[in-house]
C-alpha cells in the first residue's frame, strides 16, 4: 500500500466545505484532496484553497465530472443540489459522502454502523445532533435494550446557518429516526435549541435513555465511556461534562430508571470557530468516513493489481 492515496474532492466552498478542506490537509491519511469545487467564483473558500495549493473551481459538479481520477466526493452544498449531484456521481461510479440533509443513501455514524455500508456508493451523515448523540444511545442499547431515547441538542445561534433555520423540523425528524434505526432505541425523540449567548456556547447535547428492563449500571457506564473514547479518535473535542447520571422518573410506562448523559462538543477550530462543535462533528465524521472508504479502495486495488 505504502504512499498510495485516493483522490477526493469537496463540493461546496462555504463554511463546511472550507473546514473540511483544512481537516483533509491537516490529516490527509489515505486521501489526497484534489479539488474544491464551488459555484461562486468570488467565494472565500475557493480563494483559500488556491492559497493552500489546492485546485479550486467555480464550475461545481462539472469540475468533478471532468476528473475521472477522483474517486470520493464530499458534498457540502445543499439538499436540493445533492439530489442532482447524487445521480451524476453514481452514474460515474464515485462514492458520495453527503453532509446535506438530502439522504439519498444510508445514514452512517462511524463507530456504530459504517462497517455495514462499506459497499454503498452514497452515504449520508444524518444531522450534527445525530452524529453527536446516536453513538451514546447505541452505547446503551448494545448492553441493554432501550425502550425510549430522547436527545436535546443545543447549539450556538451563530453556528446555525440558514439551511438549519429554514428546515428546523427536518432536524427533529431525521435525528429521531436515526436514534431508532442506528441508535437502537425502540422509540426516539429529538429537540433542538438555538442559544444566542455571547460569547457563544459550545455545542451541548443531553441524551436520555430509558432501558426496557433491568440493567447493570456499571455495564452501561463503561459502555458509554468506551464509546466516548472511540468518537474522540476522530472528534477530539467530544467529551462528557459529567459521568452518566442514573435516576428514577415518571414516564408513560410507569416509574422507570433513566440514564442521562451530558455531552459537550468543542470544535477543533480548523476553520470554523471552536464553539461550533456541531459543524466540526460533521466535517470530522465526514473525514473519518472518507478515510475508511479510501483504505478500502486501496486494499481492493492491491487485490486486483
Amino acid at each position: 500500500m505504502g504512499d498510495e492515496t485516493i483522490k477526493v474532492a469537496i463540493l461546496g466552498s462555504g463554511n463546511i466545505g472550507t473546514d473540511l478542506m483544512y481537516k483533509l490537509l491537516d490529516r490527509p491519511g489515505s486521501m489526497e484532496l484534489a479539488l474544491l469545487a464551488g459555484i461562486d467564483p468570488h467565494s472565500e473558500g475557493l480563494a483559500r484553497a488556491r492559497d493552500l495549493g489546492v485546485e479550486a473551481s467555480a464550475q461545481g459538479i462539472d469540475a468533478v465530472l471532468e476528473r475521472p481520477d477522483i474517486q470520493i466526493v464530499f458534498d457540502a452544498t445543499s439538499a436540493k443540489a445533492h439530489v442532482r449531484h447524487a445521480r451524476l456521481l453514481r452514474e460515474t461510479g464515485r462514492i458520495a459522502i453527503d453532509l446535506t440533509p438530502a439522504a439519498r443513501g444510508p445514514y452512517v455514524v462511524p463507530p456504530v454502523n459504517l462497517e455495514q455500508h462499506l459497499d454503498a456508493l452514497n452515504v449520508n451523515l444524518i444531522t450534527c445532533g445525530g452524529q453527536a448523540t446516536i453513538p451514546l444511545v447505541y452505547a446503551v442499547s448494545r448492553v441493554t435494550p432501550v425502550h425510549y431515547a430522547e436527545i436535546v441538542s443545543t447549539v450556538a445561534s451563530r453556528s446555525a446557518g440558514p439551511g438549519t433555520r429554514q428546515n428546523i423540523d427536518e432536524f427533529t425528524f431525521t435525528t429521531a429516526h436515526g436514534l431508532e434505526v442506528i441508535g437502537g432505541a425502540h422509540q426516539g425523540k429529538a429537540i433542538i435549541i438555538l442559544n444566542p449567548a455571547e460569547p457563544p456556547i459550545l455545542m451541548r447535547n443531553t441524551v436520555y435513555a430509558i432501558p426496557a428492563g433491568d440493567f447493570d449500571e456499571t455495564q452501561v457506564h463503561d459502555s458509554i465511556e468506551a464509546m466516548v473514547a472511540e468518537v474522540q479518535q476522530y472528534v477530539p473535542g467530544y467529551r462528557l461534562k459529567n459521568p452518566p447520571v442514573f435516576d428514577i422518573r415518571e414516564t408513560p410506562w410507569g416509574r422507570k430508571p433513566v440514564v442521562t448523559v451530558l455531552l459537550e462538543v468543542e470544535g477543533a477550530g480548523h476553520f470554523l470557530p471552536t464553539y461550533a462543535g456541531n459543524l466540526d462533528i460533521m466535517t470530522a465524521s465526514a473525514r473519518r468516513v472518507g478515510e475508511v472508504f479510501a483504505r478500502r479502495l486501496l486494499s481492493r486495488q492491491e487485490v486486483y493489481v
Binding site: V152, T154, I191, I193, N195, P196, A197, E198, I201, R204, T206, K241, N242, V245, T260, L262
Partner: peptide, 18 residues
C-alpha cells in the same frame, strides 16, 4: 449567568452537578 434560554431544562442538572 450562562444565558440559558427557553427550553434548556437539561442545563439545570449540568449546572447543579458543577
Amino acid at each position: 449567568r450562562r444565558q440559558a434560554v427557553a427550553g434548556q431544562e437539561d442545563w439545570i442538572l449540568d449546572v447543579a452537578l458543577d
